[in-house]
Amino acid sequence: MAETPKRANIWSRLAESRNGLGFLFMLPAAAFLLCFLTYPLGLGVWLGFTDARIGREGMFVGLDNYRWLADDSVFWLAVFNTLFYTVVASVLKFGLGLWLALLLNENLRWKTFFRAVILLPWVVPTVLSALAFWWIFDSQFSIISWVLIKWGLISAPINFLGEPWNARWSVIAANVWRGVPFVAISLLAGLQTIPQSLNEAAALDGATSWQRFRRVTLPLLTPIIAVVMTFSVLFTFTDFQLIYVLTRGGPVNATHLMATLSFQRAIPGGQLGEGAAIAVAMIPFLLAAILFSFFGLQRRKWQQGGGD
């Protein structure tokens, strides 16, 4: 102890001041995030400006990757697919999720049981449930085709994942299946914070059930809808697992999302620079979603009577 008085001094001074202590406590998490999150984020942007390949240092090539991508019809197809996938899946998830949340908010028996069961698709690893969907969407032995044929609605099995538009709708269906529970349970949590008495007061004033939903429930739910849907849009936009399992971007790139195209070019293709450029091209969309969330949160503060 006698050898390190100065050191002990620094420690105790650090531990006594608020900022020093805060710094010490933040250190492990901050160091980790700086090394494995902030630095890679910057490195990714840098790699987008280089022609790096796996196992070879890249040279700075300026905007070449982006110029190349601008002329690449597959890239633009992936952008279209990503937007289509995100918009359609999010709208469906929101509609079905809100409906399910309203159903669960009714005074039901077995409510906790239903709630627990409904969240299952969201708990199970995406890749593994996507495998089940792969089997359900099989081109010959799909159970859906079999039932539809039995009912006499179609005459030949549907080629779910082999035709471009069939494949797009099939992956959207699988994504919606997985996303609805998250939206529903989050919105249910929001619904439960709305006092019943408001609804009753509106009913006494003669409001119909649609008016009660439109004028009482929905406005009070808006802030949480904004946040939940931002998360949902963000995760749908950057989806990778589902597509990778079900179609790997096929048929003829019809279901390639930006994330899967970026993986395809960077890892099996070896073009790290180009893959990074595609990933960086996703950032503006993500920023837009985050800003949307931010303003959603702001509005919430204002609604609760906080400062503007």
Binding site: L234, F235, A276, M282
Partner: peptide, 14 residues
């Protein structure tokens, strides 16, 4: 909010 799909390439590099 930073998704793994934009981090995996630089992380693979690191």
């Amino acid at each position: 909010l930073v998704p793994p799909s934009i981090l995996f390439i630089p992380l693979a590099y690191i």
